[in-house]
């Protein structure tokens, strides 16, 4: 058994799990945060994307034990003080979700994408390419791409206003 301790959405949590326990199972079953989903077995669909130490990773392709000592953020931890993250707000505004199942991974991947490229620096083709590891069956991606672009541009505006 592995004793696992991490900061999850700003709170220190710990638990004892089998060594084979995946990080996604620790988050969903041990910690009861069911916003992170599992949609495939081959690390391709991206429904489980979360941030570990500030980087997007697939929680289904990491052991909970590997995440010991890390800082983890899931979709539940994205909104601050009841205010939606601009990416969350943009997904709603642009109808970037239908059944909602891929949405957690999409939003977490989008936040990471915007951070890596810099707000305001994403174009349509880049976003599509960056979504290679996130599969959606409902939306045909068009509104997801629009939402990410809009959020990226809005975040650039917010940064500018703050400067």
């Amino acid at each position: 058994m592995a004793h696992v301790s991490m900061v999850l959405n700003g709170k220190r949590v710990s638990g004892t799990v089998e060594d084979r326990t995946l990080l996604v199972a620790f988050i969903r079953e041990n910690q009861g945060l069911t916003g992170t989903h599992v949609g495939c077995d081959t690390s391709q669909c991206g429904a489980c994307v979360i941030h570990v130490d500030g980087k997007a990773v697939k929680a289904c392709t990491m052991l909970a034990a590997q995440a010991d000592g890390t800082e983890v953020v899931t979709l539940e931890g994205l909104a601050k003080g009841g205010t939606l993250h601009p990416v969350q707000a943009a997904f709603r505004e642009h109808h970037g979700l239908q059944c909602g199942f891929c949405t957690p991974g999409m939003i977490m991947a989008a936040v990471d994408m915007i951070e890596r490229h810099g707000a305001g620096n994403l174009d349509e083709a880049t976003i599509r390419h960056e979504l290679e590891g996130n599969i959606c069956r409902c939306t045909g991606y068009q509104n997801i791409v629009k939402a990410i672009k809009a959020a990226s541009d809005e975040m650039a505006g917010l940064q500018q206003a703050a400067e």
Binding site: S43, G46, V49, K55, A56, V57, K58, T61, M62, A109, D112, M113, R116, E130, E132, G133, N134
Partner: peptide, 9 residues
Amino acid sequence: IGDPAVRHM
């Protein structure tokens, strides 16, 4: 290689 999340690991 892979996708952004895979490349992080």
